[in-house]
Write a protein that binds this DNA or RNA. Structure first.
Length: 900
RNA sequence: GGGCGCGUAGCUCAGUGGGAGAGCACUGCCUUCACACGGCAGGGGUCGCAGGUUCGAAACCUGCCGCGCCCACCA
């Protein structure tokens, strides 16, 4: 059916097929935009800058449903600013993603049967670069398909020369300021990736384990990690615990090892937990490490970097998870296991990259001393220099920033920025800046570790603009305007950019140093049942499939219309279809306009000369544009999309286009005015839509207006430059026209409802006489009302069999219908009776309210007035319905039904 | 353990003191000349529960129940 070939019928006049096929225009348009340099920023421009930071996707990454909404929203924000006349910069790039990328390449090597050790450090890193050249950055191509208007001439990578230089500079500065230090600490260690991790790279989950109570002679301890007992160097009890007071200061023998360890008293112990006695393993537990520090205990490491036991003959060489049952068994044999609780559910840390259980491990690492940096990062939000949207998310930010631990930045990886520190033969430690010569000579060697990926990410807002050099870009585009990202990386990225930005740019003063002025947090993508998207749950939806099936615009609109600040975004196939339908609707509306000669040429006719229908749509357009502009300003994308959707579908298509058909058909002066108004409305509407659905609006706008591009067309409101303020003029706001058309709609809707209730076919024309129009302002629209409600001019033998009355008192419109032969009197009587009952009830309610003295005494006058008006309406309604009931012809039933 | 948030139509969600809304889904009629990816009309909700404030509560307060997320060094 739909295989009608519209190209034949419609192509000649409109140039647009009746069904939009995104695939045929999207790629072409994107290339055109890039070629014409629309997205290329000019640092020498006089326009005010608008800069938005693209969270650099992992070089290994693919565009997934998590990115799609954020990219859409960033693009929409940027496009609107561009149309408003800002010099916009949206700078693309990728993150080298240390562990993730190293893992991918190692897996590749694994397929060839070799390990990274076979290649050596240099060979391996070389291999990663090769991999990047060949497979990396697929996501960049996917961004083009989404329509991201980024400045490709400024594309960056966190490991490129400029970024590396920024990293080196930053490290050196922090080091010289005493904000980077090296220390032996308990850190999170991933035995599979064999590297240290920062606290936030550890995900905690409640896992099944076991709680084993072991007798250490006179005292019993409980543990979930039996294997670490080999490294115990004390047993701790609470200082006030009377049960153990006599044992504090004595020594016991540690089972299986023969070592003697002290019993000590420490405030950290909770006497109410377990036996109230804790085994202390300073090398393998962060709390125990601190207890050890306080009491001068030795730290004995019993696990190596792969999580394998390194001591104690029978257990040496066992993996930690093999050692656990082995040691439990050995203790049980000695009769020392006094209680076992399993399953025991407790919180266990996992590597956020590979899910391996984290092993707290004592090791020598580099740290950023965060105290002063975090304080500054918190203050910048507290004193309003940086705004967080939505505001309640700021609490999360503060909670983290105010309680931050020092940041472990060294990683035992090969892929990343190598720590610029050299160690000399005499134990010298020298941090080397990017412009300095590293020390040479015998015995000097560079640190083997690399920096946490997030170290370079934290510099992204200014390293991409040329820092540490004082470039024109940095001057023009820093601080950036908006950071739009998911709330899941507030800690990983947002807070760290704040810390580093404020520090590195401190010479610009408090108002110029922050990395961005506004942080707009988006939700995460969920499926239509609120579940997180994941491949394993089988509910992953691929945004590229949506683009293939429905087009980029449909995908973008679908995502944007669900995006409320900070709220999660549900996605489903049905929603995407709704998006596709909207695009088609807009397409056809514009196509209709073009087919009917809509034009943007010449000035708009004087408002006074226009019929109320035209003044109404212009008034609605102006209000809608203002609403939308405000919603964009507040990152209320869902509301902006809703307003656009509602105006496009319910007002423009359902009413204005239908109303316009008559004057367009008639031609002449009327048609000329309507064509101009129609062209204007679509011109403005397509501009308003463009930030969200760039492709289809470009195709339609250029066809409609003959303009070069909508990308650079002035935004209808909130302009900072350009002379297009007249696009939406406050003067077009027209209350009387709006209420008049509302009345017109009510008349048409009432007649339609009546017709539907009578079971009339939509196309069937019914003779009708319309009273009450002539003395009202609706008079000129009788023909349109007849057209919309399918009412004919009364014939000579007109015979009123039913009437529809809309409104009351002198302003009522009465439509008398001749339904002889078709009307179902019974149905109509039932309908009127029901409505009559409702109206009577209304009257009773309102009267009761007005009789309530307590209410009258306290309610505001306007509320009382409102109720009086309501009472008047209800009384009129009762009268009206009574009249209609009385006017109803007597019911005549077919003979065969008269018995029922 | 701490923090944040949520519970409104079958589903996903708007709605921050004055007559319960949207999209999708559902029902009926319709290939009406922009659009069947459409049109018209319609059904459907004790706004989680219980108290309180108020003339008036989906909204404000308290408690309870249920759910989600984040943070946390409970052995």
């Amino acid at each position: 059916m739909t295989a009608t070939d519209p190209a034949d019928a419609d192509n000649p006049p409109s140039g647009l097929p009746s069904v939009y096929s995104p695939a045929s225009v999207e790629t072409k348009l994107y290339e055109r935009w890039v070629d014409r340099g629309y997205f290329t920023a000019d640092a020498t421009s006089d326009k005010p800058p608008f800069t938005i930071v693209l969270p650099p996707p992992n070089v290994t990454g693919q565009l997934h449903m998590g990115h799609a909404p954020q990219h859409t929203l960033m693009d929409a924000v940027t496009r609107r600013r561009r149309m408003q006349g800002y010099e916009t910069l949206w700078l693309p790039g990728m993150d080298h993603a240390g562990i993730a990328t190293q893992n991918v390449v190692e897996r590749e090597l694994g397929k060839e049967g070799i390990s990274r050790d076979d290649l050596g450090r240099e060979g391996f890193v070389e291999r990663v670069w090769q991999w990047k050249a060949e497979y990396g950055g697929r996501i960049l191509g996917q961004m083009r398909r989404l329509g991201d208007g980024v400045d490709w001439s400024r594309e960056r990578f966190t490991m490129d020369a400029g970024s590396s230089r920024a990293v080196g500079t930053m490290f050196k500065r922090l080091y010289d300021d005493g904000l980077i230090y090296r220390a032996e600490r308990i850190i999170n260690w991933c035995p599979r990736d064999r590297t240290a991790l920062s606290d936030i790279e550890v995900d905690h989950s409640d896992d099944e384990g076991e709680l084993i109570s072991i007798s250490y002679g006179p005292i019993t301890v409980a543990t979930t990690r039996v294997e670490t007992m080999l490294g115990d160097t004390a047993v701790a009890v609470h200082p006030d615990d009377p049960r153990y007071a006599h044992l504090v200061g004595t020594e016991i023998e540690l089972p299986l090892t023969g070592r003697r360890i002290p019993i000590i008293a420490d405030e950290h112990v909770d006497p109410a937990f377990g036996t109230g006695a804790v085994k202390v393993t300073p090398a393998h537990d962060p709390n125990d490490f601190e207890i050890g520090q306080r009491h001068g205990l030795p730290a004995i490491t019993v696990l190596d970097e792969r999580g394998v036991i390194t001591t104690h003959g029978p257990f040496k060489g066992l993996d930690r998870f093999e050692a656990r049952p082995a040691i439990t068994a050995a203790l049980r044999e000695l009769g020392l296991v006094v209680a076992e609780k399993r399953p025991y559910i407790h919180s266990v840390g996992h590597c956020s990259r590979c899910d391996t259980v984290i092993e707290p491990r004592l090791s020598l690492q580099w740290f950023v001393k965060v105290e002063s940096l975090a304080k500054a990062a918190g203050d910048a939000v507290r004193d309003g220099r940086v705004t967080i949207h939505p505001p309640e998310m700021a609490r999360n930010y503060f909670e983290w920033v105010d309680n931050m631990h020092d940041w472990c930045i060294s990683r035992q990886l090969w892929w990343g920025h190598r720590i610029p520190v050299w160690y000399g033969p005499e134990g010298e430690v020298v941090a080397v800046g990017p412009d300095d010569e590293p020390p040479s000579g015998d015995g000097w060697r560079q640190d083997d570790d690399v920096l946490d990926t997030w170290f370079s990410s934290a510099l992204w807002p200014f390293s991409t603009l040329g820092w540490p050099a004082e470039t024109a870009d940095l001057e023009k585009f820093y601080p950036t305007s908006v950071l739009l990202t998911g709330y899941d990386i507030i800690f990983f990225w947002v807070a760290r950019m704040m810390m580093f930005g404020l520090y590195a740019m401190a010479d610009r003063g408090p108002e110029g140093s922050m990395p961005f002025r506004t942080v707009a947090l988006t939700g995460l993508v969920r499926d239509d049942r609120g579940r997180k998207m994941s491949k394993s749950a089988g509910n992953g939806i691929d945004p590229l499939e949506w683009i293939d099936t429905y087009g980029a615009d449909a995908a973008r609109f679908t995502l944007a219309r669900s995006a409320s600040p900070g709220s999660d975004i549900p996605v489903s196939e049905e929603l995407a279809q709704g998006g596709r339908n909207l695009i088609t609707k807009l397409w056809n509306a514009t196509r209709f306009a073009i087919l009917n000669g809509a034009t943007v040429e010449g000035p708009l006719p004087d408002l006074q000369t226009l019929p109320a229908t035209e003044r109404w749509i212009l008034s609605r357009l102006t209000r809608t544009a203002a609403d939308i502009d405000g919603y964009f300003e507040d990152f209320q994308f869902a509301k902006a999309c809703d307003a656009l959707f509602h105006f496009t579908w319910d007002e423009l298509c359902d009413w204005y286009l239908e109303l316009a058909k008559l004057p367009l058909e008639r031609g002449g002066v009327e048609a000329t005015a309507t064509r101009r108004v129609l062209g204007h409305v679509l011109d403005v509407l397509l501009r308003l839509w463009h930030p969200v659905i760039p492709f289809v609006t470009e195709e339609l706008w250029t066809t409609l207006t003959g303009g070069e591009t909508v990308v650079l067309a002035p935004w209808p409101t909130g302009l900072v430059t350009g002379g297009a303020a007249a696009l939406v003029d406050v003067a077009t706001v027209d209350g009387p026209a709006e209420s008049l058309i509302t009345q017109l709609q009510a008349v048409v809707t009432e007649v339609r409802r009546f017709r539907a209730e009578q079971g009339l076919r939509p196309a069937q024309r019914v003779p009708a006489r319309i009273d009450g129009l002539a003395n009202g302002a609706l008079g000129p629209f009788e023909d349109q009302i007849r057209s919309l409600a399918r009412l004919q001019i009364p014939t000579d033998d007109f015979q009123e069999t039913a009437a529809v009355v809309v409104g009351h008192s002198g302003r009522a419109v009465r439509v008398a219908l001749d339904l002889s032969g078709t009307i179902d009197i019974g149905k109509e009587r039932a309908r009127l009776t029901k409505a009559f009952g409702v109206a009577v009830n209304e009257v009773a309610l309102a009267e009761a309210k007005l009789a309530d003295e307590a209410f009258i005494a306290k309610a505001p006058a306007q509320v009382v007035d409102k109720i009086r008006v309501r009472l008047g309406d209800a009384v009129a309604e009762v009268e009206r319905l009574r009249g209609q009931l009385d006017a109803l012809p007597p019911e005549t039933l077919p003979p065969d039904q008269s018995q029922q």
